[in-house]
């Protein structure tokens, strides 16, 4: 009985030694991949359709390995890379923007253009016509002040000739001036009111529109690559490489 047990023990040890020798041999047959991916470090990849990873360097057994790269806003890129034994290979990769992101970017661009037309320009128009109305009001007020000064000049005047000139020439002229300035002010104020009403309406209408939202469909697809459904709902399969040497 003891001999039988020993025999099994020897067999088990032999298997373990074989496995160790085998793993040692496969470690020697490994190679490294170093990724230089546009856009920078914010990317992930799924290795051999199984392990989701997020690192710049991986050490893998020699031979072909399948990668699916993805980064936010970018499209997934599938590729097979040959790992060469004992060598470090630099992989330079550009992840193109996804169609969804391009559409979103286009919408954002259009929104900016729309904002320029429906917010910035109306604001500029409000400010412009407001300044115009303000300036014409200032002139209107000056003309009125001039008439008040004329009235005061009449009150304090003691030169009959100057008083006659004031009444016959200056005051009528200043009254005409006031009338003109008032007309200009009414026109500019009306213009300002019209522009303000129109612009306010445009601004408020534009404010009701929400900003475009980006739905990263590529991310959903990428997440689905390693999503394993189960009875309790499912789980992600991720991989991690720890270099023990």
């Amino acid at each position: 009985m003891r001999t039988y047990a020993n025999k099994w023990c020897y067999w088990y040890i032999g298997v373990q030694v074989c496995m160790l020798l085998n793993s040692s041999a496969s470690a020697q047959a490994a190679g490294k991949l170093r990724f230089i991916v546009d856009p920078g470090g914010n990317y992930s990849f799924v290795l051999d359709h199984q392990f989701r990873m997020q690192q710049r360097e991986v050490e893998l057994s020699a031979g072909p390995h399948h990668f699916t790269f993805w980064a936010p806003e970018r499209r997934m890129v599938d590729t097979t890379i040959m790992v060469v034994e004992g060598r470090t290979k630099d992989i330079v990769l550009y992840l193109p923007y996804s169609d969804a992101f391009r559409a979103y970017d286009r919408e954002v661009h259009e929104m900016k253009k729309r904002n320029l037309l429906t917010s910035a320009l109306p604001t500029l128009a409000i400010v412009g016509t407001g300044v115009l109305a303000g300036v014409s009001f200032g002139k209107y007020k000056s003309a009125h002040d001039q008439l008040q000064a004329d009235e005061e000049a009449y009150r304090t005047g003691s030169d009959p000739q100057a008083i006659a000139q004031l009444k016959d020439v200056l005051i009528p002229g200043h009254k005409t001036d006031l009338s003109d300035k008032r007309g200009v002010f009414y026109v500019t104020a009306g213009l300002f009111a019209a522009v303000a009403v129109g612009s306010t309406w445009m601004i408020l209408r534009n404010a009701k529109r929400g900003a475009p939202k980006f739905n990263d469909t590529e991310r959903v697809k990428f997440d689905g690559l390693v999503w394993m459904p189960s009875e309790r709902g499912g789980y992600f399969m991720t991989g991690m490489h720890i270099n023990l040497r």
């Binding site: 009001f137 009444k167 303000a196 306010t200």
Partner: peptide, 30 residues
């Protein structure tokens, strides 16, 4: 939005501004 709010205030002020500075100086009364 701020520009719209400002415009509303200014529009409310307009009738007041238009109402003042009437041509009250009559030469015949001088």
């Amino acid at each position: 939005p701020f520009p719209a709010l400002t415009a509303r205030w200014l529009m409310a002020l307009l009738p007041l501004l238009c109402g003042c500075y009437k041509d009250e100086l009559d030469v015949d009364t001088l």
